[in-house]
Design a protein around this nucleic acid. Structure first.
Lengths: 361, 361
DNA sequence: TCCTCTTGCAGAAACGTCTCTGTCAACAGT
DNA sequence: ACTGTTGACAGAGACGTTTCTGCAAGAGGA
């Protein structure tokens, strides 16, 4: 058989390849590639001509071939750690959505595309997509996905400081301890005498640091800790825990809930016990959701500033991918923001106040 | 230069390739490929040996190379149509999350991975990832992404029946008209005399069909339509529209809201006007969110059964990818479910009742 | 006129995998 | 002993790009 088989004329199975474009434009493959990618030394006339022919043929370069040749896919993954066996469960819809939006924009601005991948059984999914790097949200203690990626030499940046010795390339996080202390001070200033906490049973860093800060504050102030733990991934468990907390003999007169739905959970529980908010019970929870602006009463929330986190994470990751990691620090702390509403104030002025800020930008 | 350069010994830049595995195992590349993919005629001993060596070397086949060779990437895309210039905006967090979860599971079960892609400027993102097929949620009238994909011969299945002549491969949807009629009947049976509607300004099929069904019902019953439109992607606009609706001189005594946040919007507006729910105002909205189980009072919601839709969409898509499209119909209607709570009942029994079902499974 | 640049383009070698087509042994059947 | 047959493997293309190298032709300088 000679090299030029007669059978492979035109586009052999529907899609036009670079060869077809070259033939139709009467130039070589090299010229097409250069013209389309803005490389080489070509007169504008040729460039335009090739581009026009490519458009007419509906030519799209094969992502697989390009990736294979260049070693870069232009893709970065965004993972949400899973709690059960389900692909993903969001305790924080709004947080995730905001963070993902910001991350997508930031990636796009630097020429990358972001794909959201469930963190299920690792290889099955991950090995099918060529990733230049990955963002991991709240990696758990010894996350197999992360170690696997790192072992392959793929940069990994985490949202939330990694637990244990997880070898991530960089991380971005809030100063959770400072945020909790700020809230407790805020509640105390509003007149709270005994502040309770609604927290989680899981061992992730957010839960651990926040709980620790609470206990530390109690010790310093001299208040007995009053808290309930529950598995944060189970929405019903949150409602039950809120109820338990308010049913205690040492009922708190103010509560901070670490998770997004805690606001509504606590509000419902307060109603059941005939407690008025904020008169009998002060309430704050950590959430990005806007529903707390219209609840009865509106609830004070702590925002973790997901947009800033999403942007920062992507910048760090792309820097690492492109080998520019010398510029920025590999650890970045984003300040939180306390959005003060009726539920945490005995006298009802309505303003937005910034929380104590973390050490770095 | 001879073919075997001395310089390319071992893994040349960190990652082990199939060549390295072959060399380390003392077999040929063919044997490695066959052993790892369960093909060819190899004794179990060889197969095990190769697998063991591959594991030891941390070998992962290159997704790009595999895709290039086989023409299949094993990836299917999931798009959320964007409203503004932002990558994606969810009017329906919960719907999307549930749908995406179900779709991911279904895809995994059939050996595919699902990647969630923002529907921004099409090529920029889409051309970077090799997709075997795509799921599109609520494609707009003449969606450029969809036509682009179809022109490339990539199967596209849409969640929501396509508007206009959008050439999708298949679609899955609820019977929105039947659902709306069911709700209106439900409200009328609960004693509503004038039922209002909170609807959107956009032209997508869901909004259009639902609004049309409402107007049709009003005409049949002989009630003057009472509705407010607003841009569904703007959360603040929803609150304003809810307020406008209840401020009208011909104030409705029952309202159905087409979008997820309408429940809280309407509840807040009702409070402002001193209307008790359900005594003065009956409320239903379309939502998958569980927060409506704990609002004061709990709000009746219409569920579109996102899990069933996600599963069905993926099945249809994979059938099309694998050329099995003869089996299933290309149009599938999923029944909705009305979850009746306090807000739509003058007497407070609490049960879950199924809505009138669509024609097909 | 000869030599060097520059311009405009073409050839061909990778990238890492799958798979079709051998090849070579052993062995059975006649 | 000669021919099939089968098992166990190896060789050698593709797949569709990018990109390094190379070549011809014209421009400019000596």
């Amino acid at each position: 058989m000679s090299r030029a088989e007669p059978s492979r004329r035109g586009s052999r199975h529907g899609r036009a390849g670079i060869r077809d474009v070259a033939a139709a434009a009467g130039v070589s493959i090299t010229t097409v590639s250069d013209a389309l990618n803005g490389k080489g030394r070509l007169p504008d006339a040729t460039r335009r001509h090739v581009r026009e022919v490519a458009d007419r043929l509906g030519y799209r370069p094969s992502a697989a071939a390009r990736t294979l040749r260049t070693g870069k896919s232009g893709l970065i993954g965004l993972t949400v750690t899973t709690y059960g066996d389900e692909p993903f469960t969001f305790t924080e819809f709004a947080y995730f959505a905001e963070m993902a939006r910001a991350a997508t924009s930031a990636a796009l601005a630097r020429g990358y595309a972001l794909v959201i991948l469930p963190a299920t059984s690792r290889h099955d999914v991950w090995s099918n997509v060529a990733l230049d790097g990955t963002v991991v949200i709240d990696p758990s203690d010894h996350d197999p996905v992360v170690s696997d990626l790192v072992r392959q030499g793929i940069p990994v940046v985490s949202d939330g400081r990694p637990a244990g010795t997880l070898p991530v390339t960089a991380w971005v996080d809030n100063d959770h301890e400072a945020a909790v202390l700020g809230i407790l001070d805020h509640l105390a200033a509003a007149g709270a005498r005994r502040i309770g906490l609604l927290t989680g049973t899981s061992t992730d860093t957010y839960t651990r640091l926040s709980t620790h800060a609470y206990l530390h504050w109690c010790e310093r102030i001299g208040q007995d800790p009053v808290y309930e733990k529950y598995p944060a991934h189970d929405p019903c468990a949150g409602a039950v825990a809120a109820d338990r907390l308010l049913a205690r003999p040492d009922r708190p007169d103010a509560v901070y809930g670490l998770f997004d739905p805690n606001g509504t959970d606590l509000l419902a529980a307060a109603r059941r016990y005939g407690l008025r908010v904020p008169e009998d019970l002060l309430l704050v929870c950590c959430s990005e959701s806007t529903v707390y602006a219209t609840t009865e009463p509106p609830i004070t929330t702590l925002s973790l500033k997901p947009r800033r986190i999403g942007t920062a994470v992507v910048q760090l990751l792309i820097d690492a991918i492109e080998g520019l990691d010398t510029g920025r620090p590999v650890e970045q702390v984003i300040p939180t923001e306390l959005i003060v509403r009726t539920s945490s104030q005995r006298r009802p002025p309505r303003t937005t106040v910034s929380a104590p800020r973390g050490p770095a930008v």
